[in-house]
Design a protein around this nucleic acid. Structure first.
Lengths: 351, 351
DNA sequence: GTTAGCACTCATGATAAAAGAGTGCTAATA
DNA sequence: TATTAGCACTCTTTTATCATGAGTGCTAAC
């Protein structure tokens, strides 16, 4: 139960006792959701000083911007700066209990071969363990390397177009066979295209690539234009974002009013904010954004903890935990650390 | 603006004026969300009688169970029975404006070959036009006829398993090639399996079928057991339910309290109620369930309008519009009628 | 430097009174 | 006989007032 990890002597006027008090305020507010008074801290956190002393220190912490007061005669709540200091210097990631680890490893077992499934399950399990809205998505690798395309027979007039990438992703669509053409002919074309595109990055495959291909094989491809449309659509990186826990999140006391709930529901339904959270780059594999630190203003009074998942140095997916600023940062971060380690370990062994 | 469509002389004590009054109450309550008083009706709906007369009739309508009173000195609101009578006998489906028809036909254009996309768009457009939570799903045809399976090469140790049905659906999964086996060998096996399963209904493919197959080709398939697992999973009918409009729905006045909002969010996140709404059979292609008429109790104070979409007599999908009991039934039904007709027309032409 | 004591502030909750909407009944009316 | 005006009555909603209590911030004593 030590309150500090980083002594950081440069921090203006942050002596040890103030740190302990800030730590106590955050701790208490996170679990009670009520402004914390000096007496509460004197009673419940064994600091060895009276409430008056704590009151003085809290005033200083307020002046320095770590604490806020909803109104004159209320207790204190942590400010963004306060949470930030807590996360950076005071908090330690929680360790999970055996049961919890068990539950996670069970839910992310490699039963399900599809990576998508794993991320869906991760979002669910984190949401249910932390009362947060959790979102996760497999990484659609930026370098989406073409492997081959193939046509499969369906009936006289239609065929199935498959686009296969080197990491085993398949997208399929039903295409009409151009009148006067046959599936064999289409496969012949496909083989040429395979040769042409082999090893290429699909994210750079656009109109121009198709045109230069057309030029190369010296043939009119207009009858196949609809097929190219299908192909391009199949290649479009459609990242599926899995989410869970919105119902748990809005049960938290800070969401017990209609506007906040509507905000959450909008977030959930509109989806693009969730996408952008997961999409933005990170300099570390785990990052915390507190309240207004979030670039998106619809997240201005939420906190986001975001984690990248790597296997063998390769980014395979991202997960974000969205909760109130009054979030159990230690627990969420501990959970994500564990998952990062476990997932890497599990998938590496699988190979 | 005629108030009746069905005279139904058998209906106990329902004279013409009472019908007009009931119609007016529903009409007014639907648009205002406030209990409707006798004076309001006298003023805004040209019935040619005074508020006192209307008051008397309203009292009768109340006694007969068509209207309810939130409290003694409040106006009346329609009861379930009142809405039911309105929907069955008083209401007419709205006609859409040209713009609205335009918008729908545009959003459901056959640009997108995938039926799934169409239903997703339908859910969205209806939600946005009616402030309801709208859900839609393509029908996973009960008779899901096997076409063939095929293995495609991926790398030395892995292959892609494709299961193709006769209507062109493809599901894929990456499977490991059993040690000591090769992809050619697997395709050989697949060909035998294709022969064995050809034309069979996939929903009946279970452990036993596999066993009898194993018996037939007289070979130990244990190395391939994981592949069969993948196959079975690929065959599992995973109906995707598209939804939209929850954010619009909870903006309605009756949802301006936390419990109701939580109920909606639960509905949205849990998903299985939505599934069951779409799954239950219907005796007519369009049905209305008002409040407690819904079998599921989480829908007890919501109304559901559900429509089936057919093409050439074949059921291809279902859509349900979930709103407050105070719903614009005429508009929703008119909208769904139009979509049913349009979709059938459009897809038939496509063939 | 720490602490007890106390006046002061402000949110919260209870209570009461006033306002307003709409009914239900009665008696008058066409 | 059906309709309507009139009015007392009911019940919700709004507003005002007051008491309560939590917590601070300051001062003076330790």
């Amino acid at each position: 139960m030590t309150a500090r990890r980083n002594t950081d002597p440069g921090e203006s006027g942050m002596n040890d006792r103030k740190k302990r008090i800030l730590w106590a305020v955050v701790q208490d507010y996170v679990s009670s959701a009520e402004p914390v008074g000096s007496r509460t801290i004197a009673k419940n956190y064994d600091l060895g000083v009276s409430s008056a002393t704590i009151r003085n220190e809290m005033q200083d912490l307020g002046d320095e911007g770590y604490l806020e007061q909803p109104h004159t005669s209320a207790g204190r709540i942590p400010s963004i700066k306060g949470y930030r200091f807590y996360v950076d210097c005071l908090m330690e990631p929680s360790r999970l209990t055996g049961e919890e680890e068990e539950r996670i490893t069970h839910m992310i077992s490699d039963e399900t071969t599809k990576a998508d499934e794993i991320f869906r399950n991760m979002a669910r399990v984190v949401a249910s363990m932390t009362h947060t809205l959790s979102v996760a998505a497999r990484r659609v690798s930026r370098t989406c390397i073409f492997n081959y395309i193939r046509f499969l027979p369906l009936d006289d007039r239609r065929a199935i177009l498959l686009v296969v990438t080197q990491d085993g992703n398949v997208s399929n669509s039903v295409v009409n066979i151009p009148p006067g053409s046959s599936i064999d002919e289409m496969q012949l074309l496909a083989d040429k295209l395979n040769h042409f595109l082999h090893g290429k990055d699909l994210s750079t495959t656009d109109e121009k690539t198709i045109l230069s291909f057309q030029k190369e094989i010296e043939r009119d491809l207009t009858p196949f234009s609809r097929i190219f449309v299908s192909m391009r659509r199949a290649l479009a990186p459609q990242q599926k974002v899995y989410s869970g826990g919105a119902a748990g999140l809005i049960r938290q006391p800070e969401f017990q009013n209609v506007e906040k709930m509507q905000d959450i529901l909008n977030l959930l339904e509109e989806r693009d904010v969730l996408h952008s959270i997961l999409d933005t780059a990170m300099d570390r594999p785990l990052a915390v954004r507190i309240g207004s630190e979030n670039p998106d203003k619809s997240l201005a009074d939420l906190s986001v903890v975001k984690a990248q998942f790597h296997v063998g140095g390769e980014l395979i997916g991202t997960m974000a935990v969205i909760g109130p600023t009054r979030m159990e940062y230690g627990r969420v971060i501990g959970l994500l650390y564990f998952m990062q380690k476990h997932l890497e370990h599990m998938l590496k062994n699988k190979e």
